[in-house]
């Protein structure tokens, strides 16, 4: 905004103005903060994960099949997000929007599964208030889930702007950033899958 909008057309759309480059760098730094945030939550889970206080344990509540479906949904959505950005680079607005919508649908599917999972846990008598283990589990999963929810809402805003304004450096930058965000959530999920579910079932 400050720099007069010098446009360097040799770069991809989202990198063409200085302000857009700064926004993208800023978002990377923000993701750095998010990494610390999730690392802390993982640390907390790591400390509390065997404190059942007489309540259910990992094995009592985890349903591996559902978790696998969630994982496939989210991994696929990360892939389709990649295709969306690829379409953006090709200046194919229609392709971009279609793939974005597919991504969000997969994300919504993931959320649906996760909410079901939580309901299932509650039925088993495993709530956030039951034990330290469950508190940390719910907050870790819930924080990730809340991020996915926010991502879906945010991406919807971006899609509306793409429809209204077409592909401009600004909309391209917004799309690119939401893409980064989405991949990040996918990586976090891989960690959750490994350190929460696999470890819980193996232990």
């Amino acid at each position: 905004m400050i720099m007069s909008a010098k446009v360097d057309t040799s770069l991809p759309l989202e990198y063409q103005t200085e302000q857009d480059r700064m926004n993208i760098l800023g978002f990377w730094v923000f993701l750095g903060a998010e990494i610390v945030l999730f690392a802390t939550l993982f640390g907390v889970y790591g400390v509390l994960y065997e404190r059942f206080a007489g309540g259910p344990t990992h094995k009592d509540i985890f349903v591996i099949k559902d978790v696998m479906i969630q994982t496939v949904l989210l991994l696929t959505s990360s892939f389709t997000m990649g295709i969306a950005i690829f379409e953006m680079r090709r200046h194919n607005l229609k392709g971009l929007i279609i793939w974005l919508v597919i991504t969000l649908a997969l994300g919504a599917g993931f959320l649906f599964m996760e909410i079901n999972e939580f309901i299932h846990y509650a039925h088993e008598g495993a709530t956030m208030q039951t034990s330290a283990f469950l508190s940390s589990l719910f907050v870790l999963l819930g924080t990730h889930g809340a991020h996915v929810t926010l991502g879906i809402g945010w991406a919807t805003m971006v899609i509306i702007q793409l429809l209204k304004r077409g592909l401009t450096p600004t909309t391209a930058r917004k799309t690119f950033i939401i893409g980064l965000y989405w991949h990040f959530l996918d990586v976090v999920w891989i960690f959750i899958f490994t350190f929460v579910y696999l470890k819980g079932l193996v232990a």
Binding site: Q129, T130, A132, V139
Partner: peptide, 8 residues
């Protein structure tokens, strides 16, 4: 029950 005495 993150930091409480009860509940682990």
């Amino acid at each position: 029950h993150f930091f409480t005495v009860s509940g682990g």
